[in-house]
Design a binder for these strands. Structure first.
Length: 470
DNA sequence: GCATGATCATGC
DNA sequence: GCATGATCATGC
């Protein structure tokens, strides 16, 4: 068959791909040849390969166009309320071959062979729409930028080291910054062999984190009228220095100083100690000053490396006995959503697989002292513990067994308590009792169709033992 | 003193 | 108006 492009010539492939811009699959492919069972979620890329570029999908370690050394990737965009475009998800790359990778180094790895140069095709996802009608928005050839290479190499080595340690089954996306190891496969039963342990490991693929994909989108969209993400000033990660090292170095001279000393040092004189949220505001302001972030923006939105890695910054006040004064809350969950989720795709697991930056202050003679700064992500065993809390919560909502008893103004619930699990528990997270989300099942005890918003919390004892003291 | 339920304050 | 990060209040 005569191809409409030359598969040995990179430019020819890219030129042909550019014709996809502002089109849909229906407009460029022979739709009648596509079977109905190929039209579901996840088939966009396969249809593109088979019915536009005319080659059979492959999953070898070579790129899709081996001679031109070009990999083809398509991925969905979403549109925000403010009309800006963002990546809908992480960008999944090649499957990690646990057995082979331990004999490779970064430069000659399957990852580099496959993804050094990628032909990126971004389309706008619209719920309910036939995938044949998705609008193709961006077509671009992209290669690993040198500015990110050091961090990505570090990430690759972190993943490889864990496999070499016989801990492939404990991999988590939170282990790394830009390049993650995301689960891949139909469900948690998709496992494969690892070289230094008998334990089967979940199948995983390299992936660029969503925040990193947003950065790619912003850089390739250039000065387009439609906004595709944001370019953020960098804290200038210099060669051979990790994000951890840079941030630690910035905080190091300040460890042991009091909140008042730090406020003076950074000319932050606008905080009234009588304000209810004084400490959280002071902590945040200090963190911003240390990292060079203007006071009116979020750290996560301003620092390029934090945005790309989707690092979550949390400040914690410890009591003199090292116990955090409060547990740590997350956004409230919607009852109607959690009952439809599976653990693998759940919001809670997604949060727990993030990289966190914890900033610890501690009370000392009624003063607050900057004690420690720590990058952290949840170890695999603890994610399994959190899963129990999540599963129990889902079950309770599903059965409508939330309320156990009403005592005056207080309702006792069956949600997992702090004493049940070492990692996490469920508590209200609302403006007041009337601040509710609808229930999928009427509550058996109160007959209510809605219930006060709740969220998952990290136990303060867990934060003390596993994040602060460890 | 802590666990659990309830609520606050801000910014977008 | 509400999402988010956080703190308050009360009973055991």
């Amino acid at each position: 068959m005569n191809l409409p492009y030359n598969p040995k010539d990179k430019k020819s492939i890219i030129d042909f791909a550019k014709l996809l811009k502002d089109k849909s699959l229906r407009q460029v492919c022979d739709v009648n040849a596509i079977k109905n069972d190929r039209r579901g979620k996840g088939h966009f890329g396969q249809i593109l390969e088979e019915f536009y570029f005319y080659y059979k999908p492959n999953s070898g370690s070579e790129p899709d166009f081996p001679i031109a050394k070009l990999e083809l990737k398509s991925s969905p965009l979403k549109r925000l309320k403010n009309k800006e475009y963002r990546s809908k998800e992480r960008l999944a790359l090649n499957i990690i071959n646990y057995v082979n990778v331990v004999n490779q180094n970064f430069e000659n790895s399957d990852f580099i062979k496959k993804n050094a140069s990628i032909l990126l095709i971004f389309y706008l996802y619209q719920a309910g729409q036939d995938i044949l009608d998705y609008h193709i928005k961006l077509v671009y050839e992209w290669s690993l930028p040198s500015i990110d290479l050091e961090i990505i190499k570090n990430d690759w080595e972190t993943i490889t080291q864990k496999i070499a340690d016989g801990r492939a089954h404990e991999l988590s996306e939170g282990d790394t910054f830009y390049l993650g190891a995301c689960t891949k496969g139909k469900n948690s039963l998709s496992v494969r062999k690892q070289p230094f342990s008998e334990i089967p490991a979940k199948q995983r693929a390299y992936s660029f984190k969503q925040g990193y994909v947003n950065h790619i989108i912003a850089s390739i969209a250039g000065d387009k009228k439609e906004v595709y993400g944001k370019l953020i000033p960098s804290i200038a990660v210099t060669n051979k220095q990790t994000i951890e090292e840079i941030v630690s170095a910035k905080f190091k001279p300040l460890i042991g100083k009091t909140d008042l000393e730090l406020l003076v040092q950074f000319h932050l004189d606008c905080f009234n100690p009588k304000m209810k949220d004084y400490y959280s505001r002071v902590s945040k302001a200090i963190v911003k000053s240390v990292l060079g972030v203007p006071q009116n923006v979020n750290v996560e939105d301003y620092i390029e490396e934090f945005a790309k890695a989707e690092i979550i910054v949390r400040t914690v006040r410890l009591k003199e006995n090292n116990l955090p004064k409060e547990d740590i809350s997350f956004p409230s969950f919607k009852y109607e959503e959690i009952v439809k989720e599976e653990w693998e795709g759940s919001n809670f697991k997604a949060i727990l697989e993030h990289k966190f930056l914890f900033v610890f202050f501690q009370f000392e003679n009624d003063q607050l002292v900057l004690r420690k700064v720590r990058f952290w992500n949840m170890p695999y065993a603890d994610i399994l513990e959190a899963e129990k809390v999540w599963a129990k919560t889902k079950e309770i909502v599903l059965k409508g067994h939330i309320v156990r008893e009403v005592k005056g103004k207080t309702r006792l619930t069956n949600f997992p308590k702090k004493t049940i699990n070492s990692v996490s528990h469920v508590r209200p997270h609302a403006s007041n009792a009337a601040d509710t989300y609808p229930l999928p099942t009427k509550d058996k005890f109160t007959q209510a169709k809605e219930y006060t918003k709740h969220c998952f919390w990290l136990n303060n004892t867990y934060v003390r033992d596993e994040i602060y003291l460890r």
